[in-house]
Design a protein around this nucleic acid. Structure first.
Lengths: 359, 359
DNA sequence: CTGTTAGCGCGTTCAT
DNA sequence: ATGAACGCGCTAACAG
């Protein structure tokens, strides 16, 4: 009781460094120095200050500190949905790496809305985040491109690194780091697996071609066919959403109208594969005995399905970690601009959803 | 070209409101007013300012703005792992509700480390977050309790709301909001389901009793047994981790040593149930024909398993949304302290993993 | 309607 | 080793 504080004792009146200084009977400068620990202070004085801090339950004000030039390093990660198994694995990687390096990690969800992504990037500019990491497909609008470029330059201007995960560069005038994984190689490898098992007519349940992910995977599929001397059948190539229901619906439609036209299905994501599997199951089609099925991403679900899904492993967590690492290393000058494009490898995980075709 | 800026043109030199003012040939106050939009400004002046802002690609500095009293409202959500299906659903709810109300959402992962949770709460104090939402079990250490209390009071002092999701209150002297769901009721209901199907010896694969979640669920189990006049067998109650491997290992051990002692398994989470199912499958035990199995949480996985898992639905997304809503409503005076404890309902989702017992 | 100016809380010279 | 004073970029009185 009785210490005279300047304001009424209500809430909202946060303690300042001055309160601590008064209580410890030192100047604010001394308190600042004790807290920062970057300057010699007499042991006894330090004790007094620390005691006052504890007794008052004081913490610094981040904003004031930032304004004075000492920033709380923050890494921002932007994705469309935290619940998505693959991106959440990337988020986990970002989180771990950021924390390990003493950075705060901020996660934002866009629900696929480009506007929100842009707004969030602006916000990060305002907050002077040390890095902004973007993941997930984008429509490659010419109009959006311009806005991205502008904001990206703004980020660069405040020393904030922009990292694009599996996304096309914004052009030479926008300094950004790119981390991706080998979509094409993975698709090639798993298509090869089907081909080696005798499959020739492979239904391709793809995503939208605006997404570079889809482009890469489809490319791998085609290259594998070409290498096996199989002429691709364009009518077997489908485009749709990367969702379970999309996989279900599309497969059901094919079973009704195009049954017999294919012996295997390549689903562009495990989620789509899960939907496809459910449709096959509902139609009484056995996997892999009647139809073989492969996915892509190797999310946990892949080994929960029955049969366990043969798929392509994508190192999502590593993707997140790498993004953070590159951003920080570059900021601290431990890396040259030249290192700023990394492609992580993918590989096939063989499980039980592919059968050798006997004809 | 040739506008004279005060610093060398390198990076790191962010634009200030003054740059904009100079370019628009107005005072900084006018720029501030245009940007805030909370004060009359002549249309022509506004135009000039906006043009300068665009041309310069300027954004405000959050920290300076915060220091001057205008905060970017931020909601912080703390959980152990973004990849966990149930908590990530809660995170999604938090995200959505926060964004919908114009708040920034910050997500932090602790990996189960209480120290990190505490550190993060401190950080949020420093950042003056408008709300901090905690989810996940805690060990109810007397020592931790004290530290939580201290930080919680600190949060309160800066007007930051603390919300505990499914976690015991920190005591009457710590103002906090609690949102939980009915663990006991759900466990009661699903146990009842097993009992109604004739099961009497139900192996209980539980979590650690330090977690209130486990306490609640076990309570429901016991109450259901009591209501059916079944004497509980303490040796059928197991405690362990909430992981898939734990479920697998524990079930395997039981199959080797205690087979025949139970006709059904109640796994305290779907993850544990998934592990149990795998163990049963590997041992050639059919579900539900030989052994019935139920879980808890109703994560997506529950309907991917074969057989589809009968489980208790927990409204995780709603939990997150409610947490945010309560915090904001209270801050804005739209709610009284009395409303600050909400219990959401749970219900059984009947699928295919329980069979009627014929003996 | 617009400009001037005094803080917001902290880090950091420069004196002492 | 410690203290006094200025400035970080912005908002909000107060004048005009």
């Amino acid at each position: 009781m009785g210490t005279e504080r300047r304001s009424r004792g209500t809430h909202e009146a946060a303690l300042t460094i001055r309160d601590v200084a008064e209580r410890a009977e030192v100047s604010v400068a001394t308190v600042s120095r004790v807290l920062a620990g970057n300057y010699p202070v007499a042991a006894k004085t330090r004790q007094r200050v620390m005691r006052a801090v504890r007794e008052l339950n004081y913490v610094v004000n981040t904003h004031a500190r930032a304004l004075a030039g000492v920033r709380t390093e923050t890494v921002a990660f932007v994705l469309n949905d935290v619940r998505g198994p693959s991106f959440s694995a990337a988020a986990y990687g970002v989180e771990r790496e950021a924390n390990q390096r003493g950075r705060l990690c901020l996660i934002c969800t866009t629900e696929g809305d480009q506007e929100r992504e842009l707004a969030f990037m602006q916000l990060m500019r305002e907050q002077q985040a040390s890095a902004v990491i973007l993941i997930g497909g984008v429509r490659d609008d010419e109009q959006y491109r311009e806005r991205y470029t502008e904001i990206a330059q703004g980020l660069h201007a405040v020393g904030s690194r922009l990292v694009l995960c599996g996304r096309p560069s914004l052009g030479a005038d926008v300094p950004a780091t790119t981390v991706e994984y080998d979509n094409e190689g993975g698709a090639y490898a798993i298509t090869t697996n089907l081909l080696a098992n005798g499959h020739r007519r492979i239904l391709y349940l793809g995503g939208m071609l605006e997404h570079t992910t889809s482009v890469g995977r489809l490319l791998g599929y085609h290259r594998a066919l070409a290498d096996f001397g199989v002429a691709p059948d364009p009518t077997l190539i489908e485009h749709g959403e990367f969702t379970r229901v999309s996989g279900y619906e599309r497969t059901r439609a094919w079973l009704q109208q195009g049954a017999g036209r294919f012996t295997a299905i390549f689903a562009e994501t495990d989620m789509v594969a899960a939907g496809a599997l459910a449709a096959l199951e509902d139609a009484g089609v056995r996997v892999p005995d009647d139809i073989s099925l492969v996915g892509y991403d190797d999310i946990e679900l892949a080994s929960d399905l029955r049969p366990r899904l043969t798929t392509v492993h994508v190192p999502y967590e590593e993707l997140g970690r790498t993004a953070v690492r590159l951003a920080i290393d570059l900021k601290e000058g431990r890396s040259r601009e030249g290192d700023q494009h990394v492609v992580l490898g993918t590989h096939v995980v063989v499980r039980q959803s592919v059968a050798r075709l006997h004809h």
